[in-house]
Amino acid sequence: MSKSVKRVQKALGALKLDTSIQHMPGSTRTAEDAATACNCSVEQIVKSMIFEGAETGKLRLLLVSGKHTVDLARAADIFGETLIRADPRRVRSETGFAIGGVSPVGHLSETDTWMDAALLEHDRIWAAAGAPNAVFSVAPQELKDATASKIFQIG
């Protein structure tokens, strides 16, 4: 088990989330791959996307339903500033995760977190657990509370 996956496992326990990490035989790097591997709808997949505030430079973690994309043209209206894609090296150094395996929990440093309201429509959602083939499922309200996420609406 990789360091990143162990860190997620430790965070899940510390947050008392009722879940366990599952290793899938194939990649769960894309929302479609993850939905197939997890035997769920793409809407139940949590895409953990890291952006940087164009003015503040502050990293923001957006937990987005697999059915949605983030419209960066609307970001300033939702998040208070324009967002740009974060550099992958910065993502790894500040979160401890490589893009494709970014988990909502277990980051090396605290990250401002926002959750897509559409994720709250499901009983269970699936999120990355620190590696391209590692995932965990959780009740969306539990994840929202554990990550102190602010809710945002796409569309």
Rank of each mutant, 00 (worst) to 15 (best):
K3P: 00
K3Y: 11
S4R: 07
S4I: 01
K6Q: 14
K6E: 15
V8H: 07
G13K: 13
K16N: 15
T19E: 14
S20V: 00
S20A: 10
Q22K: 14
Q22Y: 05
H23R: 09
P25I: 11
G26V: 04
T28Q: 03
R29C: 02
T30M: 08
A31T: 04
E32Q: 14
A34V: 03
A35D: 04
A37K: 09
N39D: 10
N39R: 13
C40M: 10
S41D: 12
V42R: 10
I45N: 02
V46P: 00
S48I: 11
S48Y: 02
M49D: 01
I50F: 02
I50L: 09
I50A: 02
I50P: 01
F51N: 00
G53K: 09
E55A: 08
E55R: 13
T56H: 09
K58Q: 14
L61S: 04
L63A: 01
S65V: 00
K67S: 15
K67P: 01
K67R: 13
H68N: 15
H68E: 12
T69V: 06
T69G: 05
D71H: 12
D71M: 05
D71L: 07
L72I: 07
A73F: 09
R74A: 06
A75F: 04
A76C: 10
I78L: 12
I78Y: 02
E81T: 09
L83Q: 08
A86T: 12
D87Y: 05
D87E: 14
P88D: 15
R89D: 12
R92E: 15
E94G: 00
F97P: 03
F97H: 01
A98C: 06
G100S: 09
G101N: 12
G101S: 12
V102G: 01
S103F: 05
V105R: 05
L108T: 10
S109P: 00
E110Q: 13
E110N: 12
D112L: 14
W114N: 10
D116A: 08
D116W: 01
D116Q: 04
L119G: 07
L120A: 06
L120N: 07
H122Y: 15
A128T: 06
A129W: 07
G130A: 09
V135N: 13
F136Q: 01
P140S: 08
P140M: 12
Q141N: 07
L143S: 04
K150C: 08
F152I: 03
Q153E: 15
G155I: 12
